[in-house]
């Protein structure tokens, strides 16, 4: 008789390390929904790697049983990209906050995106620096009072959705931590997507962000209309820019298929007639005088 292992449930993915987030943090909801999505996809814990940077949400990998890397501030994406290039068969998921991704790490996003690196990037966007106790973040709205902007934020915020769309992301979605089913649905689709997939999850910080509160989002969250053509970049950008009207659209904005970095690297190796047993003498002999 075959003894089949029971399928993993969301809680089976939890490690022994308890989350360190404040009570009421949106990230709890994200963690639970993401693990449900892992269970739904039956991800093998040893074939999955979570890579994060620095910040409250970047503690995520410790709370999960899979392989993981907790890297330096802003560097999660290029580390994850290196891991994926080395081990394309692994499911590589990069997670972090808005400051990690779009401020200190902002320079990397464009390049990991435009290469269509086949990793999933989940941002928990709370529009504030939580770990350092309440400084302005790249997604904080203009005028917001934070510990480093007592007279109000002077800058325009980054629009993460428009940012990755214009660099050619092939999967772009936004969710809200208080809509766990939507988070699960979009993260599942993102992991299934071949190519770079981006899910920006609005995840309020009740401790330090007194502007982007749960009440604020009750008013401003709007579901993307059902008839939206997810293959149309212009309509996706139009939705992304709804933030200018103070709206927070949630749902799938954009998804297309395009060759991935893994595939392009494989093409290069094919052109080079790659072999694991390549005779290095052939390379060396080219340097005979």
């Amino acid at each position: 008789m075959d003894i089949k292992e029971a399928p993993m449930k969301a809680k089976d993915y939890k490690s022994v390390v308890p989350p360190t987030w404040c009570p009421g943090c949106g990230d709890y909801g994200v963690l639970n929904a993401v693990l449900k999505s892992f269970a739904e996809l039956e991800l093998d814990i040893f074939e999955t790697a979570l890579v994060s940077g620095i910040g409250c949400s970047s503690r995520f990998p410790y709370f999960v049983k899979t392989y993981g890397m907790h890297t330096a501030h802003g560097r999660a994406l290029p580390v994850a990209a290196g891991l994926k290039m080395a081990r394309p068969e692994l499911e590589v998921i990069c997670l972090g906050g808005d400051g990690d991704g779009f401020s200190i790490g902002g320079g990397h996003v464009a390049h990991v995106v435009r290469k269509n690196t086949d990793i999933t990037y989940v941002i928990m966007d709370n529009a504030i620096y939580g770990l350092t106790k309440g400084q302005v973040s790249p997604t904080s709205v203009q005028g917001m009072v934070t510990t480093t902007t007592p007279y109000g934020v002077p800058d325009n915020p980054v629009n993460p959705l428009a940012f990755v769309l214009t660099y050619g992301a092939t999967f772009v979605a936004q969710a809200y931590s208080s809509k766990p089913k939507l988070v699960q649905e979009l993260v599942t689709k993102a992991i299934q997507h071949k190519g770079f997939s981006f899910v920006n999850i609005i995840s309020p910080c009740p401790t330090f962000n007194k502007f982007n509160t749960f009440d604020y989002y009750k008013e401003n969250i709007e579901e993307i209309p059902e008839g939206h053509n997810t293959k149309d970049l212009n309509s996706a950008l139009e939705i992304a820019l709804r933030s200018k009207q103070g709206k927070t659209p949630v749902g799938l904005l954009y998804q297309i298929q395009s060759p991935t970095l893994t595939e392009r690297l494989a093409d290069i190796r094919e052109k080079a007639e790659a072999s694991d047993n390549y005779d290095l003498n052939k390379i060396i002999d080219a340097y005979k005088p």
């Binding site: 290029p78 320079g107 464009a110 290069i268 694991d276 390549y278």
Partner: peptide
């Protein structure tokens, strides 16, 4: 690429070493 390896030009030196660390963690 001939020996089944990969090379990429990264966006900067920080990303280069980040890539390398990720790949080395990968074995």
């Amino acid at each position: 690429p001939k020996v089944n390896g990969n090379l990429v030009q990264a966006e900067d030196e920080i990303a280069s070493l980040a890539n390398v660390i990720g790949a080395s963690y990968g074995g």
